[in-house]
Design a protein around this nucleic acid. Sequence first.
DNA 1: ACCTGAACACCGTTCAAGT
DNA 2: ACCTGAACACCGTTCAAGT
Lengths: 223, 223
Amino acid sequence: MTDAARTAPRRAGRPLEKVLSRGRITIAALEVITIEGYGGFTMSSLARTLKVAPSALYNHVSSKQEVLQWLEDHVMTMVDVSGFGSEPWDAAVRRWAWSYRDVFARHAPLVPLVAVLPVTGAPETLKMYETVAVGLAEAGVPGETIIPAIVAVESFIFGSALDANAPADIFDTGDLADSSPTFTDAVRSQDRTSGAAPADAAFRFGLEALLAALESTRSGPHA
Amino acid sequence: MTDAARTAPRRAGRPLEKVLSRGRITIAALEVITIEGYGGFTMSSLARTLKVAPSALYNHVSSKQEVLQWLEDHVMTMVDVSGFGSEPWDAAVRRWAWSYRDVFARHAPLVPLVAVLPVTGAPETLKMYETVAVGLAEAGVPGETIIPAIVAVESFIFGSALDANAPADIFDTGDLADSSPTFTDAVRSQDRTSGAAPADAAFRFGLEALLAALESTRSGPHA
DNA sequence: ACCTGAACACCGTTCAAGT
DNA sequence: ACCTGAACACCGTTCAAGT
């Protein structure tokens, strides 16, 4: 008999795991949001999915905010870090950054929360940071530059995730076109390389700029 | 007698402007938020400041969201674009970007709204874009690059504005330090040039990266 | 045309009472 | 230890009734 089984004995017929736990609550939250969107995500709808009274949730969670923080950490596992250790450093960063942006474009309401998410309570997020930090260190990015670089890329990603949700006509100047001729012209002639969405062209521009800056900080004969 | 006066006659003793108008509602909203913060900003508190019943607001505004969009456009006037036309292009972009980030760091809850703010209803925002677009065009940035460049810089600014509100210990790994040695090391050795806040070091890194990318797109013998 | 006051349909959260 | 049901203190928004 294991220690765990001895300290937590259970009657036969009962489920092996508690109905309400961080894990179960988190995936229920993801389920609600996938089906009903963030607008339909309430403590009530979450409780309904878990077949429990709303008040029961508060035996396991201190607030809706905390559920969202759990969800945020979970969503981080969907970000693709597989390039680190298997591809050249810049390809790995590209893969990571694009998937990071795509994931949070689908979870835009979580973006503002990231600024308040301490890594202590977000183990998956920390795991991602560690992978990226190792990747940059092995690429020869100096130690004191790694955090500013990660934060800069991440800030760009979060802003771009919000921007990815902008309607296509957000820059249509309408009847104000006369007062903003240069901007209106720029909108008309904007780069649409390979039919990419405007948000994608901007993301590529910024990401490549950040990659070039990273490249210029590298030292030594690294891969 | 002016046309305006003829078409809008008023009795003596009445205020020259209506009590409730986009302008008045906007500055009342700013007042509430400055004093009570975004958490204290409700249609009720807004109405109280304007000495009016909450329901009265709906004769002038379709939703709280719309008030926030008006506010967002107003906040844009606080961004410093004075460098364009008076400084070298890169200094002008630097001044603009830093002040843009600072303004929205103080108004972080408005950040997610920007993705849904059409320039048609945001004349001040459009004015800012026009100034920046002219600045970049005169600097020799090609027309098709101007929009992607502005969007990239802006996305970086919005993400950085959120990041500027992060607590100082957000990257403290605590008892998870063992499982993330490289990241923990990087946090310990991060660049603190001239005692700048971590968020500032990251912002500088990213902004200079974007400026370098802009520089490399310039053509011709421009200032 | 624009205001008031009452009402509606929600929220997130708390807490006594049960098992 | 953890659940239920009722309650609380709010929200944003609508609408009939007034002027």
